[in-house]
């Protein structure tokens, strides 16, 4: 499961499937009149390339008989850290319109700094507040960039 061979076989099969999806989606693209190359041609060709190269990758890995190369997949703790980071990013994205960029970013920084063991909760909170404040002052007030501001718009 941890070998490069297994990883290549799985990714090859997934790429083959992705290639098929792209080909099917490309076939659904409407044709245009008076053009030398139809809009579907490039996606169709790319879908075929992805599928064929994916199949070749899987096949090459299947036939590989050399020394075993190990993929450095994470241990349980490592996987949990990545998962929590991704979930917190997804939560941020779901809430950013209502929280606003400064507050949302501040909370994200505070949580992740604390969770990843950067410093104590109070220090992480202060760092989050400083990040949110800096974003508000520099990007929203100074550069006038249209970030979602959430509560702060009231």
């Amino acid at each position: 499961m941890r070998s490069q061979r297994f990883g290549d076989m799985v990714s090859g099969v997934l790429l083959l499937l992705l290639g098929l999806v792209v080909v099917l989606a490309a076939l659904l693209i409407k044709g245009a009149a008076d053009v030398q190359m139809q809009p579907r041609t490039l996606p169709l060709a790319l879908g075929c390339i992805i599928g064929v190269t994916g199949a070749f990758l899987a096949l090459r890995a299947w036939r590989y008989s050399g020394p075993t190369r190990i993929v450095p997949w994470p241990d349980w703790n490592g996987a949990l850290r990545v998962l929590v980071t991704l979930v917190s990013l997804a939560a941020f994205l779901l809430l950013v319109q209502s929280l606003g960029m400064p507050i949302g970013s501040g909370l994200l920084v505070a949580f992740l700094v604390w969770y990843l063991g950067g410093c104590r909760p109070i220090c992480a909170g202060l760092l989050g507040a400083a990040t949110g404040g800096a974003i508000y002052l520099i990007f929203i007030r100074l550069l006038n960039i249209s970030f979602p501001v959430g509560f702060l718009s009231r």
Partner: peptide, 23 residues
């Protein structure tokens, strides 16, 4: 890194958002 990493993520978010202002 436990401090720098989250800051890089926030910078990345701002960078990605600032091009077309779309979440």
């Amino acid at each position: 890194f436990p401090i720098l990493g989250p800051l890089i993520l926030v910078f990345s978010i701002i960078g990605a958002y600032s091009v077309r202002y779309q979440v």
